[in-house]
Each structure stands twice: as C-alpha cells, then as structure tokens.
Nucleic acid binder design. Structure first.
Lengths: 235, 235
DNA sequence: TAGTGGTCTAGACCACTTT
DNA sequence: AAGTGGTCTAGACCACTAA
C-alpha cells in the first residue's frame, strides 16, 4: 500500500475514532513529514485527498483543521439503502415481496444495453427503517454477473455487500434520476399509505468499477412524508 | 495565475471547443511537460484536477483520455435555475410575483444564524422554461450583503450572476434538501396546475466562498410532471 | 516577523498495459 | 520490451495569515 494511503488511513482513523476532534489543528505539513518519515509532497497528497473527501479543511497561512462532522457526511455518494439508513441512525431492514429470473423484456434490454437472450434477476422489496415501511425498491440485476443470486434471502442482507463479497463485484458510479409522483394503488397497498400520497421516485443505473459495465437498475419509491434527501453541493 | 491552472484552462478550453474530442488520447505527461515547459509534477496537478472535474480519464499503462460528454455534465453542482435550464437546452425566464424587505422573522433568523434586527429581501418568482411555468421559487437574501437589491428587476436576470457582478459575492457551496409534496392551493394557482399534483420541493442554504457565511435561503417547488433531477454519483 | 499552506523543480523507481 | 501513469524524494521560493 502506498505511503500516502497509509498516512491517509491513519489520519482518517484518528478522526473517526474521535482522537482528533472537529476544529482540532493538525501538525503542519513539514512536521507530519518528519513524524511519518516521508517527504512533504507525500504528506500533501494524503491531505489533499482527505480534503476532497471532506475530512479536513486546509487554510493557507493558518493550518489544517479537522472538518465539522456535518461537512464530512452525505455529500451525495453512491450508497445502498442500508448505508443510507445507517448514516441517519436508523436500522435498515427489508420484506422481500418477490424474486424472479426473467428475460426478454425490451425495456430492460435497452436500459442495460444487453443481448436479447440475457437473463435478469428481479428483486422486489419493501425497505424498512426501524421496522417501518420507507420505500418500495425493485432491483434488476444481470444474472450472468451474479449467477444464482436469486437463491439468496435478502431480508436482512445488503445487496451491495453481497455483490462485493459473494461475487467480487466492485461498484463504480451510477446515473440517477429523482422526481416526485403520486402513489398508485399497488404502491399504496405495500407501503401502507393512502393512494395519492406524494412519493420520491429514484431510478438508478449502477456501473461497475470499470466505469462501463451496467450491473443494476433499481427503481425506488420513497414515502414523501418520511423521507428527505440531503445533499451538499459545491460551486 | 499558477502554471498548473493555466495548463488546466488550456486543456479544458480545447475540450470544450471540441478541439479534443471524447476518447481522444492526450499526449503523455512527460510530453506535456516538455510542450508547456513545466515539470511533470505540475502537469500531473493539472491532470488530477481535470480528472476530478470529470473532463478526462487517466489509466495507468494506457494514457489519458478525454471523457465522454455525459460523464462531464451534471454531476450535482451548485447551479442557478438559469444555468440548470440552459444545460437542458431550455430558455429560462421568470415572472416576479413580489419583492419585499422584511425583518424579525424567527424562522429566517435561525436559518441564517442572523441577528434579530437584520434585514432580509424576499423575492418570489415563478420560474419559466421556454415560457411555461416550471417552479415557484422564493429566495431570501441577507440585505447587508446586497443593499438595495430589491430595486433590481429579476424578470430576465440571473440572481447568481447579479450577486457576483453587482455585489462581488462569490458563492461557495450549499446544503440542500429534496422531498416530494403535494401542491397546495396557492402553489397550484401560480403554477397553473390542479391542487394535489406532486411537487419536488428543494430547499437550499447557500454559503459564500469563505465556506461559512450564509447568504441565501431558497425554497423551490418544481412541477413533478415536468421536472426531473439528474445526478451522477460516485462510489 | 514567523509560520502556514501553495506552487514548482528535476530527478528516481515502480506497477500496469499493450505490443 | 516499451511506454504509460503511480509514487516518492529533497530541496526551493512564494502568498497568505496572525501575532
């Protein structure tokens, strides 16, 4: 592992464990270089990446400081429902409504740019936060990348963790749309809300780490009365 | 202006003007260094920032390539309605509903962490895309940073451009929430839609470039039938 | 004025990909 | 084997901030 990554991890761990608190000042770059027996440029690479990830702020003439907690959370990243709920301090869960292997759906083939005979796994779940229905989530996966995934029970299991640990699939990025719509009869029934309540509809196509291969299409309908997206955006 | 910024701007301009096309390979780092008469580390700093901004992809052993257009657009950034519509190929406009100077609002004072006697300007506009109502936007500005801004007509004028050009205010970042709700009677009337249609509600607090000073609070209600957010998110 | 981060150099060797 | 980006060094001077 590169030296700058080791230094990065060391500092990140110190911040996350509370050994370094928000607004604490870090030692100057020259001092860190001596401490870790590396050159200043190596220290700088570690610090620049930590700043980009929101863990620290660097100010010319002043020094380097641990960022406020809220600043290092929830810049919009590719997260699973499980991770999202964890960061909100809620316990994520699921009720599996159906699991199917399907193929030949025109719409899906287009979204995935897939061959006509390719198989997909359709996983439909109600997502729970502290046991309460929060969203209806319908995921489509390309079965050739995760064979027999339909045999796994996703009641209390993160899909993304499973993709990584069982199938060695590293996710890279996703393109996502967000819109407002009304709950139809089916959505209302499974979410336990009246027909016509507002929902936040998010549709996502997830790509692997190579940046090109599409692995997942997911359509999530969040209850408008319980769910709010939070984003920090830069100019 | 630093050398690496000059190089960055040069390359960015070449990409934006189409002189360098998607998937074109850039010269290797050593060659760029010779071409621009700078060290390789300086070239690298320019390239790393261009990669972070989505203009290029770098691959060890292969080279540096111009990124696909869609990859360099619309990562979620702090944009004005005007910029947002431009990037969608629509013409942005506005109908000013009211402009007021107000003070003493508890709620506002809290959002801005402002003194009890501070004055705010409240600007309420219907935002138009190609002449059609798209959103109701209510902006609150701290008047001490932009005195007499209430005398400006924002019918065909970007608020953010005005803040920069008339008042020298550079925006830095914003914290933003996004949720789904139903149109109430007032919203329905001014947007020209029935009561109860779904709306995408975005609330934003905008900070200046210093990262600390809050300058704007804006509450935008977008028509759910016409507006969709698009985001690309990284893992 | 002293100390911080910001920029820059001219090398070096390594890891990865393609030929 | 050749060429690419990835990591790293040991210096240097500059710009900004605070005392």
């Amino acid at each position: 592992m590169p030296l700058y990554c080791q230094l990065k991890d060391t500092l990140k761990a110190a911040i996350e464990r509370g050994k370094l608190k928000p607004n604490d000042r870090l030692p100057p770059e020259t001092e860190l270089a001596q401490l870790f027996q590396v050159s200043r440029m190596t220290v700088r690479q570690a610090l620049i990446e930590l700043e980009n990830e929101g863990f620290i702020r660097r100010r010319q003439g002043q020094g380097t400081f641990v960022a406020e907690r809220k600043f290092r959370q929830s810049l919009l990243r590719l997260t699973s429902f499980t991770e999202d709920m964890q960061s909100r301090g809620l316990k994520a869960g699921a009720r599996v409504l159906s699991v199917k292997v399907i193929s030949g759906d025109e719409n899906l083939m287009q979204r995935f740019e897939a061959a006509p005979d390719e198989q997909f796994v359709r996983l439909e779940r109600i997502r729970l936060a502290d046991g309460e229905p929060m969203a209806l989530e319908i995921s489509f996966l390309r079965r050739k990348f995760c064979p027999r995934i339909e045999e796994i029970d996703f009641t209390d299991r993160s899909l993304y963790v499973t993709l990584r640990e069982e199938f060695g699939l590293e996710l890279g990025w996703a393109s996502q749309t967000i819109e407002a719509k009304l709950a139809d009869e089916y959505e209302a029934k499974v979410l336990g809300v009246p027909v016509g309540v507002p929902l936040l509809l998010m549709q996502r196509i997830t790509y692997l780490a190579d940046g090109l291969t599409r692995i997942e299409y997911v359509r999530s309908s969040y209850r408008g009365d319980r769910y709010q997206l939070y984003v920090e955006v830069m100019r």
